[in-house]
Amino acid sequence: MTAPLSPPRLLPSGDAAITVEFGRNIDDVANRRVLALDRALADAPIEGVTEAVPTYRSLLVHYDPVRIGFDELGERLTTLARLPVPPATGSRRWRIPVAYGGEHGIDLEDVARTLNTTPNDIVARHIAGDYRVAMIGFTPGFSYLSGLDDSLQMPRRQNPRLLTPAGSISIGGLQTGIQCLAGPSGWHLIGRTAVRTYQLHRDPVFLLEPGDAVTFYAIDGRQFVEQDRAAARGEFVAELVTP
């Protein structure tokens, strides 16, 4: 199958960034094209481009408008986006422990009520998922995962919370995520992990990369406390399963 790739949409994000949009929905094909363009740009840098930020469905390309204009950069990005997308390679897989519900996931019961089921059923369906890191963003290490069961989809909260705990595992729309730092969020909090996807004085500082595979398993509150201590010492806590 060699269907021609449709050109991406080039949307201005002000005068110093272009959103190169491959799709409007959460879609693995679009995400693979995003990551492919990101790699192509890293392999053949364009003068004036300052950094690129892959997301689910678009690559945000920051640039210096003194060195390159919107039209020229847009043309060059369109050309790079025509390159064939390399096949998905065997990615790393992480097993990540989560304490679900109660004080660790204050919205689990609400989510279960909204979806007309039980908290245990929500947890079972969340653990059953086979996820992939589609992007990292919002706050350091916040990993957005694709692969959420359609039946767990929840609209975001109308009024975002100003402060949510570090390590929150949450659902927003068709996305589920691992939040590393305490901060604002409009998503529904269903659990917490001790895994630090970002830790300054650890090697690597950022644990997950876009494209990594992720599965979750449930732990209790006591295990969470033990793992949290280990993570504070710099241990990964997450298990790395090599392909």
């Binding site: 609209p155 975001r156 729309g173 996305q175």
Partner: peptide
């Protein structure tokens, strides 16, 4: 069309 879009990059 509502206020939920798929998260993308900000500046």
């Amino acid at each position: 069309h509502g206020y939920n879009i798929v998260s993308d990059g900000t500046v």
